[in-house]
Design a protein around this nucleic acid. Sequence first.
DNA 1: CATGAATGAGCTTTCATTCAT
DNA 2: TATGAATGAAAGCTCATTCAT
Lengths: 220, 220, 220, 220
Amino acid sequence: MAISKTRALAGVFADEARHLGKSARTRARLMDAAVGVFARDGFEAASVNEIARAADVANGTFYLHFKDKDAIATEVALRIAGDVARRLDAAMVDLDDAIERTSRATRQFLEIACGQPEWGWALLRAMWSLPSLRKQMASYLRADLKRGVRQGAFTVKVDDLLIEVFTAMAASALLARLNGEAGAEAGSKVAELQLRMLGVPAKRAAATAWRPLAPEALPG
Amino acid sequence: MAISKTRALAGVFADEARHLGKSARTRARLMDAAVGVFARDGFEAASVNEIARAADVANGTFYLHFKDKDAIATEVALRIAGDVARRLDAAMVDLDDAIERTSRATRQFLEIACGQPEWGWALLRAMWSLPSLRKQMASYLRADLKRGVRQGAFTVKVDDLLIEVFTAMAASALLARLNGEAGAEAGSKVAELQLRMLGVPAKRAAATAWRPLAPEALPG
Amino acid sequence: MAISKTRALAGVFADEARHLGKSARTRARLMDAAVGVFARDGFEAASVNEIARAADVANGTFYLHFKDKDAIATEVALRIAGDVARRLDAAMVDLDDAIERTSRATRQFLEIACGQPEWGWALLRAMWSLPSLRKQMASYLRADLKRGVRQGAFTVKVDDLLIEVFTAMAASALLARLNGEAGAEAGSKVAELQLRMLGVPAKRAAATAWRPLAPEALPG
Amino acid sequence: MAISKTRALAGVFADEARHLGKSARTRARLMDAAVGVFARDGFEAASVNEIARAADVANGTFYLHFKDKDAIATEVALRIAGDVARRLDAAMVDLDDAIERTSRATRQFLEIACGQPEWGWALLRAMWSLPSLRKQMASYLRADLKRGVRQGAFTVKVDDLLIEVFTAMAASALLARLNGEAGAEAGSKVAELQLRMLGVPAKRAAATAWRPLAPEALPG
DNA sequence: CATGAATGAGCTTTCATTCAT
DNA sequence: TATGAATGAAAGCTCATTCAT
């Protein structure tokens, strides 16, 4: 516990960089700080000085590590997205059923993003302004949707628009949760709607989406 | 055609104010300019100076007509949303079937927003940063969804989250169209997905969503 | 009483101009408004627009009557100073004793200026920034001081510096009263100090400075 | 002499900060510049940009060192007042006679303030708009006036109004000297008037106020 | 590598002033 | 005369970015 507490304080990136060189550690501190500042002030209102201050480095130091505000924002977003995707993947590595996979992906995505609201906000803002991020997340998703079609579970054509729409549904639920307008059940609600949309019979959709998540599948 | 071209150049608000006093015309010019700047730069990045320049008035003139950027943004967003809602309403005044209404609302919303891409972008950005705008649009939608439940066509619970999700689906399609990633068929695609999600049988959903829109129902 | 109330509402200048042409009346309204705005906001912070608004005329109208803010300020100050001087003069027309005259001048000046705090502030600010105003007020004063020397009551050399110092003493008392730091007795206190400074024996100075002012000598 | 000339050019604050860090030196330059601009334009009319230009730094640099115009004005005024008070105090440390002290305070105050006309103007303007400055200067004065009363030399009641009036007399002499309307004798003249006002017999007042100031008591 | 003082463009806002009506 | 919309210079202030140390 003490360790995880320290982790939280130091920030996830700083923690990962603990054993790297000084430069990498400073860089990581900046990224952790950026996540916090973006989440608090929003991307536009965040200032480089503020990020540097939060990272406890001189403002000039920022520019040794990042070209500008956009650069750190993009990097942070991609790293977060990559991390989230990796965790989702790991949680579903031995799961074959597409319906189950799709439902879990949405539900666990929300759990992870809401468990670390700062990351959640950063992700949300990044999904809005970084198409490349959406593309990255889409590749995992596309595979599962295609799998569902192959398995005869989904009766839709899998194309870019479907991916966008599916993603937007999850994103809107994330926004509602981060805003406090929706509770923990939002994940199941949206997963159910998504499955219905994909052609899963209502009963099956409800059963899958509302089945309790195994504790080991939850974020740690 | 010549006329509609002039209209486009002058901007919709300026056009409406053509016969009003000088003050109202300047105000309208500023609103048209704001639409363009918000659409191009986003709300946060837009500057009052830029809006004034686009409206071809001195920067000080802006403050004769609006207290600040928020004031013009809110007014523009509400006027646009009101205009769109009015047009949707008018097109469906004699339509009773909820499935039909819901499908049409999404499809025509996209037609209208894409027909005037600047308005489309402004709407999209406003929906992101003005919750009040989402609430306003939601009220129309909620009525139709409830109607569908009453008619036995929709098998979902109508709550805030459903509204948000439904709206997000339309918004994601709008984004794809404005980005050029999706074509005119995006409206039907999304409408179909929405109907499936609401519980409409796949066949009926497809039939309704892809039925050609009567020309008179299209925006003029 | 009703009349004097109306006077107060309309402003002194407007009242004086009641029977003049329209232009003169507008001009007078502007001057009354300026007195109020200068007193409330200070000269620097006062804006022409605000004066025009207080006078209930269009902002452009201001420039038909005054070249700029300085012009109206100077004119207002000189008119006020002239008015005050006239009233002081009238109240002392049959008074020969220089000691008495000097004491009364200070005390009644304070009464008048404090009776109309807006005029008081305007005067005070004007005395600070308009040397010409100080010169104007000085001429009356110089006559009385010389009279006192002639009468053998004052044992000082009457020169510019004495006038300035004497005036500054009255002004500082005015400031203290307008600030609420001093009460009605400030006039007598300062008058006594002035007389002592001029060489009047302490007893005589006190007796004169603290003798109740005849009611008819008070401002109406 | 060459050195003292350089000092004058660099400004007193900059000179004091010569051996400090770069930040402190820039800050000092800004304060010197502010003294000059306040003296020339007055506090209200002075602009931050103008101060920065006079200090030969970028406008943004100003805000690295001071929150706003008020902050630098207050600091400058207090530093000047403190400096003047310290010098007066030092020159009178072994002086017991209240009459002598009071006379010297006024005369040397004028010498100091006129020896550095910019500081004189800044002081004058600050006394007008910063009551806190008057209060600070008053505390020294009050002690000497009370001492005079204790010693039986002054026959007045020492209260706030007396302090204000006494201060105003010195200030008016300072103004006259800075304006060029009065010469070096103004100090003695005013000191004499002040002593007479306080109750010192005319002869003694004149003798004290006009006694040549020892050279070592003059500002260096 | 890191620092942090300095920069200056650019933002929001106010306001004295002009001018077509 | 009077109006009031429009102007544009200039104010206060912020912030991404550079650079000497």
